[in-house]
Design a protein around this nucleic acid. Sequence first.
DNA 1: ATTACTAAAAGACGAGTAA
DNA 2: TTTACTCGTCTTTTAGTAA
Lengths: 218, 218
Amino acid sequence: MAYTNALKKLALLGATREQIQISSSDFAQQISSSPQTASRRLQALEKGGLISRVFVPEGQRILITQSGKDALRSEYYEYQKIFEPAGKEIELHGKVVTGLGEGQYYISLEGYKNQFESKLGFTPYPGTLNLMLTDKSTVLRKRLDESSGIPIHGFPSESRTFGGGKCFHVIIGKTKGAVIIPDRSHYPNDLLEVTSSKNLRNALGLKNGDQLSVKVLL
Amino acid sequence: MAYTNALKKLALLGATREQIQISSSDFAQQISSSPQTASRRLQALEKGGLISRVFVPEGQRILITQSGKDALRSEYYEYQKIFEPAGKEIELHGKVVTGLGEGQYYISLEGYKNQFESKLGFTPYPGTLNLMLTDKSTVLRKRLDESSGIPIHGFPSESRTFGGGKCFHVIIGKTKGAVIIPDRSHYPNDLLEVTSSKNLRNALGLKNGDQLSVKVLL
DNA sequence: ATTACTAAAAGACGAGTAA
DNA sequence: TTTACTCGTCTTTTAGTAA
């Protein structure tokens, strides 16, 4: 994690999104160093797998790799933790959308329902409220991945095995509920599934497209 | 800015909010260094005015100063810029509140009105929509302080001088408008004043307490 | 136990140079 | 022009020691 500052500069130049073209001497100015040091930094970042490079006559084209982005993101999380009030809840914002209707099915299964009742303290209404998160909140939401939350265990049935997941207590205005995050690796990360003892759509008078913000308690 | 990592660690230990007690050797583990280096870092941070220290037999009590917090915040902003989509707009969220009624008065003054018309491209409705920002958005809003925005100049009148400020284009759902930020130093930073050509309350069917998110274009 | 000094070891830096 | 090597210098770190 020594060259994170150089990596940050590259990111600010847009290298998280697209290849940027830059020479060692240009980059030297960015990080206030000599071209030699700049060159060394880029070598080190490449060696560490944080960036990928292609050389062109005018310099090099640089793109930050996934693991580079991950490194930056974890730095970002640390600063978020510093400025997050109390550091114990995060606020997510999005608009109400129609879900896939899966929530209704899963929540009504005994294997899940019992766990929700004992671990969350309420019997979930059979049906979830789906929020399409804003870009900003999608980034924030990833912090839930880092937190263990309240684990919901999977269980086998006669025909198939139902996967596990985790949930978090959530407050929607004055209403209590929970966010459900399945362990499935390909779960869309801009979708937030919220459950409560009541039908949230009716209780809050929500319709598709309405904006809503929820406070997730870590 | 060399010891920003040590400062970050202190912040993560809670030293932005309260004095934390720590010894050099404890801190050494936090920053993966020897106690000597840890000690020197703390000295350097103190010398730089980023932290204040009180010595106790078991070690020292450390609190991050305002200028230390500022340094951290500007780091935070940089990471926000990286993960902000397109990096050109920020999303603020808050709830509708009743303003002081000042907006209505000021906007109708010729000296301001003419500037709004020429610089924003619309004639503002005499009256502003006031948003009480969430904690999260209050932090985000500070990025507007760093950006120059569209300057609104102050002007003298017969009786008094009217101060200047700046504004930013803003999108509320599908409606265009502008955020107005006066230069006054004691302007509350959790309040966002939004204007548009229409009466936003009526146009969007808003009432006090309603949640609303707006996209501010930097 | 601390903090913080001094001095040896390690590491990083930039100038010069080759490709 | 590049990138990236070597090499001498300077900075930073750690170990040891004192207070």
